[in-house]
Amino acid sequence: MAKNKLNTQAEELISIQVVNSIDYSFPTGPIMGKWFQGLKEKKFYATKCPSCGRTMTPPRGCCALCVVRSEEFVEVGPKGTVENYDIAYYASPDPLTGKVRSTPYAAVFVRMDGSDCDIFTHGIKDEDIPKLKRGVRVRPVWNEVRTGCIEDMLYFEIDA
């Protein structure tokens, strides 16, 4: 019996397109809170592990290698060394806004001076993208208005 058979020729298939957009709020907690308070004052705070002595940038309240609390803050930077980098020619939507940014832009993974085994990621000034390589020295460029968020720092630039 074929009476119920679907007509598969030029079959219409239904789909829906949506942008799922959800607002969040992210509590910093005291450790990351200290870090963002520091950015307001143009300072980088790391936590230091009381056991192995390594510094963590941005700070974390626990050293996962030693599994001990790490609540002692030390100041690191402001200059640092590029350990690695990603130059993006293909931009995906920024999940914070849903918008796609212009390319190229780059992320640099920076070991801040005084931070012996941890790295901090931020952008690099567009003009410095062609000069990027591992080992290059960078310094922060600060935003005029600082409110305690990652945009308090605009980007790194190469420290000539």
Binding site: L6, E11, E12, L13, I14, S15, I16, Q17, V18, V19, N20, S21, I22, D23, Y24, S25, F26, P27, T28, G29, P30, G33, K34, F36, Q37, E71, P93, P95, L96, T97, G98, G148, C149
Partner: peptide
């Protein structure tokens, strides 16, 4: 240390699509 705690507003916005499939499409149509 709680004086350092604060809350940052955020958002997650991602384009997405869903296919009803052959059977689901017949139902909707």
């Amino acid at each position: 240390i709680s004086k350092d705690c604060f809350v940052v507003p955020g958002k997650m916005a991602l384009p997405n699509q869903y296919f009803a499939g052959r059977v689901g499409s017949k139902f909707i149509i």
